[in-house]
Structures are given as C-alpha cells and as structure tokens.
C-alpha cells in the first residue's frame, strides 16, 4: 500500500507514468522513462542462485482449499525420505501461509546469516521458508497489495540460503494473479521443471483448474500433471465409499483426457490427513498403510521420474 497509487497501472505497462493515477506518485518520472519496462536485474541474480537447485516444481491450482499445501508438504516429506536428497519447500502464499503449521514448525523464526536468510530445517535435508516465520503472532494478517507481495517473493528466491538442493517445491496461493506471474517471471531465466496442478473432483473446482491450465499455457509453463485430491470417502464404520465432492463431469480424469495432460494420481479423502496436518506430522509416516499414503507415494514417484527425464538446463526459458 505504501507509496503505490491505488490504480497504479504497473511499472511495466505502456501506461506507466502516464495514467491519471500516476499524478503525484513519487515514481512518476522514473516510470515514464520506461526504466520499469526493462527486465528486473533480480531475474539474473535469481538465475545465479538457482544454479545450486537441480529441480524446480510449482504446486498450483485455480481453486482454494483443494490441498495444495497438504500436497506440497507431503511431496517434500516423501522426497526427503531419501537421506541423500536435499529438499527445499517454499511457501509463497503470503496472505494465508499454512506450511508452518502443516510441517509442525509454527512459531519458528528465520535467522540472518552472512549468505542470506537461513531457512528453517525440519531435518538435515529438508529446509522450509514461509512468510509465516516472519510474523510475530499467528493472528497477524499480511494485508498487502500485489507489489509488496512480489517484493517478498523476489526476496525469497534471491536471498534465502538454500544451499545445494535437489528439489525446490513452491507452494502457491489460489488464483492466477500477482504471485503466480511474479514466480514465472523471476524464475524465467533459471527455468522451471513444471507445475503440478491440484484439483478436487467436482466441476466447480475443475472449472477453476481449467483456468489455471489456460494460465500455464499463456505463460508457457510446462505442466507435469494433475493430482485429483479428495476422491471418494470411505466411511470408517461401514467401509463403503461415498462421493463427498461428486465428479459430475467425469472428474480430473475426463478433464486430463480432454486437454491432453497426464493425470498423476488420485488421492482418496482420509480424515487422518487433515488431523496429521493439524498436528504438523507427516501423514505418510502416521498412516503408512492407508490407501491415501499409497496414492501419495505413487504420485511422488511419478514426479521424481518426470524430473529425472526433463531437466531444465538453465537458460533460455521455462520451455527448455
């Protein structure tokens, strides 16, 4: 909010410095000069930083509450079970950071070292960073407009000392707006392996996920595949399955077929998943025999394989 006029057209826009809302803005002359349209020098710095990160994966979904953070956390847990794999989990949901709670790291603080911000380590090979670690109380709301959120994301990518990392998993907020555009922009030079899209089976969710797919195509972000979450619920008493979120249009399977995108797997709704997240434990170790654990593991294996096959070799763009 501070200093940015309400209807700021954005420094990169053709209207920068010329719009009616630019009158009186301290940056008006700078914007009008076109300097804002030049590529941000941070993109190059981030590319340097990302040389130490082998694979970069974004977890996306147009819809909220479908299980992006739960999936991101369990992808990180699953990959980090191999002690020789270094995993980094970055939460860019600035207004609703859930990762600290799900990972059992609530109340932890980030420390500053000579080489940047140190992530919070859950295990030797699993580092976590979230805006939640920067807040003093769990009631603190981050009421920021786009430009401030973008600045935070830039800092997370450029200034966090992840060390040598095999997988960087980025958990995102719902939608197709500032956070998503910034991530793709800042990581453009470094390259992104691809996006994992999370959905639930009902059409109202799929509709938002189709929008997210259209976003990925617009910004030329490769899609690793779709994970359908909350597929079917098995009653713990009578063991019969019900569809809480009915797949009235064929669920993720029909959508993936229609759009030519791989379906990475379907994870059933197990009440223990939510409980494990509330307690900050890994569901994979809490319920090793659950069908949902098997489904998670299969999806994680597919992502591992697909990353091994397609490695982005730095330059020139997300499509390499």
């Amino acid at each position: 909010m501070e200093g940015v006029p309400q209807d700021c057209p954005g420094a990169g826009s053709a209207q920068a410095g010329r719009g009616s809302s630019c009158q009186g803005c301290p940056n008006q002359r700078l914007c009008a000069s076109g300097a804002g349209a030049a590529p941000d020098p941070a993109v190059e710095e981030i590319r340097e930083k990302m040389k130490a990160v082998r694979h970069r994966i974004l977890v996306l979904s147009g819809k909220g509450g479908v299980g992006k953070s739960t999936f991101s956390a369990h992808l990180a847990h699953g990959l980090a079970e191999d002690e020789d794999t270094q995993v980094a989990l970055l939460d860019v949901d600035i207004c609703g950071p859930s990762i600290p709670k799900i990972m059992g790291l609530e109340g932890e603080q980030v420390h500053q070292s000579g080489s940047g911000w140190s992530p919070v380590f859950l295990a030797d090979n699993l580092g976590v960073m979230s805006v939640g670690f920067l807040l003093s109380s769990p009631d603190d709301a981050v009421i920021w407009r786009g430009p401030k959120k973008n600045g935070m994301i830039k800092q997370f990518l450029r200034d966090v000392d992840w060390g040598d990392v095999d997988f960087l998993i980025v958990d995102t907020p719902p939608g197709t707006s500032d956070e998503h555009l910034s991530l793709v922009q800042y990581l453009a030079a470094a390259g992104i392996n691809g996006a994992v899209l999370i959905t639930t089976p009902q059409e109202v969710a799929l509709q938002d996920v189709r929008r997210e797919i259209s976003f990925c195509r617009k910004v030329r972000l490769p899609i690793l595949g779709v994970v359908e979450n909350m597929t079917g619920f098995v009653c713990p008493k009578c063991k019969k399955e019900s569809q809480i979120f009915p797949p009235t249009t064929g669920g993720a399977e029909a959508m993936c077929q229609a759009l030519g995108i791989p379906l990475l797997g379907r994870v059933p709704l197990d009440p223990l998943i939510g409980k494990s997240c509330d307690r900050g434990q890994s569901f994979l170790t809490e319920a090793p025999d659950s069908p949902a654990t098997a489904a998670y593991r299969a999806v994680i294996q597919r992502i591992r394989e697909s990353c091994r096959q397609h490695r982005p070799e730095g330059a020139p763009g997300p499509n390499s």
């Binding site: 309400q6 209807d7 700021c8 057209p9 954005g10 147009g62 407009r145 786009g146 430009p147 197709t176 707006s177 500032d178 998503h180 555009l181 509709q207 189709r210 929008r211 997210e212 797919i213 259209s214 976003f215 617009k218 910004v219």
Partner: peptide
C-alpha cells in the same frame, strides 16, 4: 468459461 483472468492487483 475456461479463460484465465491473469491480472495483477490494480
């Protein structure tokens, strides 16, 4: 209906 509204804040 599947079109993405890819807009920043302003």
């Amino acid at each position: 209906p599947d079109e993405a509204v890819v807009w920043r804040g302003p």
